[in-house]
Amino acid sequence: MPYVESAVRGPQIVAAARAVLIRDGVAKTSLRAVASEAGIPLGTLQHVFPSKQRLLQAVIEQVVDDISEVLRSAADTESGLAHAIAQGLRNFWSTLVEGHRGLQVLQYELVTHALRTPGLEDLARMQYRRYAEVVQQWCTEAADRSHERSAVPYDRLARVLVAAVDGLILQQVSDPDGARSEQDLEAVVQMLVALAAPSPR
């Protein structure tokens, strides 16, 4: 097999690892299974990721990047804070939750794994901080563009939004019901808009 740089192999291996993790779960995923999924020798994988922990760290970082990017692009910040909250949540839900149960289960499994693994605890903290930072950014941007203010600090609004959606996702993957989740999401939107209580500056 021709030599391929680690920078090229890395994304290929992480993509294969995500597929295996979604299919088999963290506990049952082995480096050998990931190598097979990626179509490369085990030794090639171990050259890039010497241990399962290193590979899981890369997967966690990529999942956080992907979800953060969807959060970043989900909101319409041109029409005020209330609209940004509502549209951002609806777009996020339709893009990354509906039809993506495996990804969401994997996300929770990776968080639990990071919290239980010495040396990886910061990854779980980083994950939720990143999500909140992205939401805070588009809430602030939406309010600034419409010359509005929020009744609560934007960092608190963002943390509450992330926590509320996190709970809805966990409920949906545990007890799937699309119609119920859609109604509950709208209730969360209303609660968050009421919490923010946007007003003119």
Score class of each variant (00 low, 15 high):
1 M>K: 15
2 P>V: 11
7 A>K: 14
7 A>V: 15
10 G>F: 09
10 G>V: 10
10 G>W: 06
11 P>A: 05
12 Q>F: 02
14 V>R: 00
14 V>N: 01
15 A>E: 14
17 A>E: 00
21 L>A: 01
23 R>D: 08
23 R>E: 02
24 D>K: 11
26 V>S: 08
26 V>Q: 08
28 K>D: 15
29 T>F: 01
32 R>L: 03
32 R>D: 11
33 A>I: 05
33 A>M: 08
34 V>H: 07
34 V>M: 07
36 S>N: 15
37 E>K: 02
37 E>Y: 00
37 E>D: 02
38 A>W: 02
38 A>E: 01
38 A>T: 03
40 I>Q: 04
42 L>Q: 08
42 L>P: 02
45 L>R: 01
47 H>M: 10
48 V>Q: 01
50 P>R: 05
52 K>D: 09
53 Q>V: 01
54 R>F: 00
55 L>N: 04
58 A>H: 03
60 I>A: 05
61 E>T: 11
63 V>S: 07
64 V>K: 06
69 E>A: 14
70 V>W: 08
71 L>K: 00
76 D>R: 13
80 G>E: 12
89 L>W: 00
90 R>K: 12
93 W>I: 08
93 W>H: 04
93 W>P: 01
94 S>W: 14
95 T>E: 12
95 T>M: 10
96 L>M: 09
97 V>N: 07
97 V>H: 09
98 E>V: 15
103 L>P: 03
110 L>R: 09
115 L>M: 07
115 L>S: 01
116 R>Q: 15
116 R>H: 15
118 P>W: 02
120 L>R: 10
122 D>P: 00
124 A>D: 10
127 Q>M: 15
128 Y>W: 14
137 Q>M: 12
138 W>M: 12
141 E>I: 10
145 R>W: 06
147 H>S: 14
149 R>C: 07
149 R>S: 09
151 A>H: 08
152 V>E: 12
153 P>M: 07
155 D>F: 01
156 R>M: 15
161 L>H: 10
162 V>E: 07
164 A>I: 08
165 V>A: 03
166 D>M: 04
176 P>D: 10
179 A>H: 00
180 R>Y: 06
182 E>H: 13
184 D>N: 12
185 L>S: 02
185 L>A: 09
187 A>K: 09
194 A>N: 11
194 A>W: 11
195 L>A: 15
200 P>F: 05
